[in-house]
Design a protein around this nucleic acid. Structure first.
Lengths: 313, 313
DNA sequence: TTATTCAGGATAATCGTTTGCGCAAAATTA
DNA sequence: TAATTTTGCGCAAACGATTATCCTGAATAA
């Protein structure tokens, strides 16, 4: 029923050592004769031998498995990235163990422990929280880590992320070119580095255009709720802005909701621009401009970076 | 550095057998004295002992790992389901190995092989293709399988899915109550069972209301493209319908696009209703009614069903 | 002819757990 | 006191692969 090296060994009268060597492509290296090698290969194929990963990893301490640590798999943005990563590593013979931290630092700790106990060969993570220590320790002492989307400025860990600064700078510039002068930026989690970069992009675009005094940043979370509340406040303020720059898709949805509720419309009463791509934005009335992030490429690249490190030992 | 049973064994002067028994909660069963048990527990905690999954699964042939086979993780619908499943099984001490079939039968085969070679204890799958054989074989002879969203009518495999029939029936009924008589249904993949159920719901609602002659089903794919093209055709036809029932979110997006392009508007010129929930639908102008599927509950339930079977084994 | 070298592969230890079996010493019973 | 049972735990064999080391016979060299 279950084929193992020794079951083949008995049938062929060849030691498991030799069989193992042939099957792992080390026949030449250990000078196994071509005849023997052929015999082994044929028999392994015939009986559909599949090595036991448990035994292999017990022995070698490698699992051909990588851990994917995501803040929220159900978030379309991270779902896209995850999908790209999974496909890429699968195609290289690796398997993905996915852990969902639900954007919670405590849960993240547990997930990390689980991933490590499963002896993943490497980790790709979009970390939550701002403590880089743990990741740095893992990267230095246990297994390679690649961060995606989010990262830490102070840590020596490779990462893949969009050019958040430039994206925000460009988005703001477009609004400026269209004549807007009162542009409010609704930001997300202020501890998030991508958020900081975007905010900086916004600030610099305004400043370089000579409107440094017009900088207005509000909000503090990547949520619909935040976008909604901040927009409500803006609408009821004495000096209404003419444009809103939402730093994420979720924030944008909140903005739209508030504007609609106030009986106002886009783009007549307000111009809106957002970060993050989402197919649905094309179908809004009117379609919402946004700074798209190349999720697919980010995922692929992160996977490649990790796989490269795994190969180079 | 690396704590193992025997490293603890040496330090404590207690056999690995006893330690293993205590740590796996079998102290009573093997009449280990409370003193010894306490000693072991304390030491294990102190040195942060974590058992080696490789060794464990080599010995027990169990991995506390389940395989998640998804057609497309980046599809928000499946992302939601996946997220729910992952959280649930993580909370029960299981780990998820995720494979993305990219909606391709061939890829699916490979993914299955990979999952099985990793000795997953069970599989939760949203299968693609219509061949139930493989899944049935696995379910009967290898590890328990639970299907989610998609399933096979002819196979004895447990599954979790929405009541597609009722959802479609109700959606159609609403349109009828609102006075619509020319309701066209744009369907997805005709081989997909959920699609068939939905189509039947639509047909029966119409028929039972005495409009069996008004049944009109077009289309053949769960894609934006399909929704777009079919709507284009409808708009250019002599006898335009007054309402469109899109059997998926993606189809709906295509419908919206075509309607907008034609300079028509919802709901003045057309009524539209759709299957699948998506947060963005609330932010469309106007918000689009839809038959929401409880992705979170589906995921949780599927996970529960599988975990139960693993325990009663 | 004898000493080396090399081709070709076998042996056995090892990875870290789990678990069937066994075996003392203590407790109980006769 | 002797026989029996119970308590408490250790021994050692798996699980299935990898790999350092060793061995044998033949070919080559001296």
């Amino acid at each position: 029923m279950k084929e193992t090296l020794s079951s083949i060994s008995k049938r062929l009268g060849i030691s498991t050592a030799t069989i193992s060597r042939v099957l792992s492509g080390k026949a030449k290296e250990y000078r196994i004769s071509d005849d023997t090698a052929a015999l082994v290969t044929a028999e392994a194929a015939r009986c559909e031998y599949v090595p036991s990963p448990a035994a292999q990893s017990l022995r070698t301490n490698k699992t051909r498995t990588i851990g994917l640590l995501m803040p929220k798999v159900s978030n379309p943005y991270f779902a896209d990235i995850s999908s790209a990563i999974i496909s890429k590593i699968n195609s290289e013979g690796y398997t993905a163990i996915v852990a969902d931290t639900m954007e919670d630092v405590k849960t993240q700790e547990n997930c990390i422990t689980t991933l490590l106990s499963h002896k993943v060969d490497g980790i790709i993570a979009a970390p939550c929280g701002s403590d880089s220590k743990k990741f740095e320790y893992i990267n230095d002492h246990i297994v390679p880590v690649v961060l995606v989307d989010r990262y830490f400025d102070d840590a020596k860990i490779s990462y893949v992320t969009s050019n958040n600064y430039k994206g925000a700078f460009d988005a703001t510039s477009i609004l400026l070119r269209n004549g807007h002068r009162d542009i409010v930026c609704i930001q997300g989690d202020t501890k998030s580095l991508p958020n900081q970069k975007r905010a900086n992009g916004y600030i610099d675009a305004l400043t370089e255009a000579g409107f440094g005094d017009k900088v207005a940043i509000v909000g503090d979370a990547f949520s619909i709720q935040n976008g909604y509340l901040e927009t409500k406040l803006l609408l009821s303020s004495a000096h209404r802005p003419t444009a809103i720059f939402a730093l994420s898709y979720t924030i944008l949805l909140g903005v739209i909701k508030a504007i609609k509720e106030a009986g106002l419309s886009i783009p007549e009463d307000f111009s809106v621009i957002s970060f993050d791509d989402n197919i649905s934005l094309d179908y809004m009335t009117p379609p919402i401009s946004r700074v798209a992030q190349a999720t697919d490429e980010m995922g692929q690249l992160a996977a490649k970076m990790l796989l490269n490190r795994l190969d180079n030992k």
